[in-house]
Design a protein around this nucleic acid. Structure first.
Length: 191
DNA sequence: TGAATGATCACG
DNA sequence: GTGATCATTCAT
């Protein structure tokens, strides 16, 4: 049983969405290719009061999508060369999203290897920018509807186990919360 | 541990 | 316009 996540799934508290995305399948279809992977690591960026969020200081041209309706992709370039993929959550006007930090490769592994220039399965998608490169996600997908057929998340009926949480990677804030979720012991989790 | 690499944003 | 920063990755 496969079921594409609907708008209502994303229109909920961000921490809950971040946690429940674990074990779901991220699917990208483009140019006749089908690429997918099981989500094994996420991070929540929630609201106006989250200093680590791009939306902390209000709207800018880049973060517009975070303020928009739930169920859309927010893709940005960082360090001048790496893309990161987020899934926008909660209602229009409330800036929040979930960063997809790692997936376990499932469909299209040969193409992922070619794009990444790596042979080992573990090196393909074990980080937010790695998985974007493997799946061919870049800023052209910013603002893309996650209910479209080009990029979406699918429930394949699996029951997730062994979920752990920690502080977010690359976030240096005194009050940093445990807003990173991952499968304990999964080899595709970043770092 | 640090280089790569360029968009983004605050400042004025 | 300028300069600091960056939700990272890879090779040294």
């Amino acid at each position: 049983m496969k079921r594409k996540l609907d708008r209502e799934f994303y229109d909920r508290p961000t921490l809950k969405v971040a946690k429940e995305l674990l074990g779901k399948y991220l699917v990208v279809k483009k140019g006749g290719h089908l690429l997918s992977g099981k989500i094994v690591e996420t991070e929540a960026y929630d609201g106006f009061k989250d200093p680590a969020s791009h939306a902390y200081k209000g709207t800018t041209p880049r973060n517009q999508v975070m303020f928009g309706a739930p169920g859309y992709a927010y893709v940005y370039l960082t360090y001048g060369m790496h893309h990161c993929l987020n899934l926008v959550t909660q209602k229009n006007g409330y800036p929040a999203a979930v960063l997809i930090r790692a997936i376990e490769p499932v469909d299209g592994i040969q193409l992922m290897k070619r794009r990444r220039g790596r042979r080992k399965l573990r090196d393909l998608t074990s980080g937010p920018a790695k998985l974007c490169q493997a799946l061919g996600v870049d800023r052209r997908l910013n603002g893309e509807d996650l209910l479209s057929d080009g990029i979406f998340v699918e429930d394949r009926g699996e029951v997730p186990r062994r979920i752990a949480r920690s502080s977010r990677i690359g976030v240096n804030d005194g009050k940093e919360k445990n807003w990173r979720f991952f499968f304990k012991g999964n080899e595709f989790v970043s770092r």
